[in-house]
Design a protein around this nucleic acid. Structure first.
Lengths: 202, 202
DNA sequence: ACCTGAACACCGTTCAAGT
DNA sequence: ACCTGAACACCGTTCAAGT
């Protein structure tokens, strides 16, 4: 569209690439400028400070993630799922215990950056709230305790990206355990009725 | 205690303090030296580079953590626990969903540093393997599926430190969910009946 | 063995100045 | 509106030199 938009997009794309290749430590305004083929001063015209550049970069990275997840959602929701168990396993494999190293690295850097940047922290939290709601809508038709399941799966997934390969159980067994846990989820104390085929919660 | 040990200890202590107060971004060799009342060159005599200083600092931070956990263990294991459920709840509250912001910040910085430092990454992994084994030994007398439970709790805990306050369930409900989940853990397919009589009656 | 200061290349930011 | 180069204070690292 406008030149501003073009330039902004280019800068952000190069920033993501640099973040992935060299990490937050190696992320330098001069390197970004060089990667874009522009001057440091010109870069600073579009993003007055490093914080603003990172904020915009993270925001766009989240948008990309969302698009990928949308694609996975189509993948994960066949018209007529064989069983809720197979469906659930696919969800966990794709969304939760995904071994996308590239994304994991970027997320790790983002988490680090966020602990000293309140605006970025707010962006992150909004993203995760959104993500949780989306995941609930994905599974609530099948599992009535979607709130609880998602509240378990999201932190588990984030933690697994960090410590997954230090655990006593391997990846396959982790997935099996989660599937078993969720399909045999204990009944809610308030509803008093046992789990699998109660209607959707109000 | 040699002078070398004294100096090393002082430097690491000041580094931890700086890491907590200003984060990895604000961690500067010149600031560390100033905090210790020594010269930058002198600091570099004890730690030839920033990476070596961070490696040593993280190692000592882990030692501190372990001591704290040992203290919590005594706290968490009364001679005659009222019930395995109360015991489990205490474990989860103290070790898993601990809201120690100070530690969370430092761990976040450490995770970030580790993605670009192989030696540090190895230190981290060794620590978590150790931690998992310890946690298993803590609960295996009560819960036969200790391997699985720990494999769930550790990544969950790490992730909760990151995204805990964005989840649909609040802290109290999260703890309740975990307790319920574990006390009513589904029986292992191989061991068969072993898991059935774990929980207390309710 | 312990400590020092000067110098190096690099960083983010500022700013007056050009088109 | 868009772009530039010079200058600033700060960073990690190196190193010859002192005790």
């Amino acid at each position: 569209m406008t030149k501003r938009d073009e330039r902004t997009r280019l800068i952000i794309d190069q920033t993501i690439q640099l973040l992935r290749d060299e990490g937050s430590e190696g992320l330098t305004l001069r390197k970004v400028a060089a990667a874009c083929g522009i001057t440091l001063s010109n870069l600073q015209y579009y993003f007055p400070g490093k914080a603003e550049l990172i904020q915009a970069t993270v925001a766009q990275f989240f948008t990309t993630c969302k698009e990928l997840i949308q694609a996975d959602r189509a993948l994960v929701l066949p018209k007529d799922p064989e069983s809720s168990r197979a469906f659930l396993k696919r969800v966990i494999e794709v969304l939760v215990v995904c071994d996308n190293q590239e994304f994991n690295v970027i997320f790790r850097e983002i988490w680090a950056l966020s602990s000293r940047d309140e605006a970025l922290k707010a962006t992150l939290e909004a993203y995760y709230r959104d993500y949780a709601q989306w995941m609930i809508s994905l599974i609530e038709e099948i599992f009535p305790q979607a709130n609880e399941i998602v509240s378990l799966l999201i932190p588990y997934a984030e933690g697994y990206a960090l410590v997954g390969n230090t655990l006593p159980l391997n990846r396959e067994k982790q997935v099996g355990m989660l599937v078993k846990l969720i399909t045999e989820w204990p009944a809610s104390p308030r509803s008093g009725k046992a789990g699998a085929r109660v209607g959707v919660k109000r």
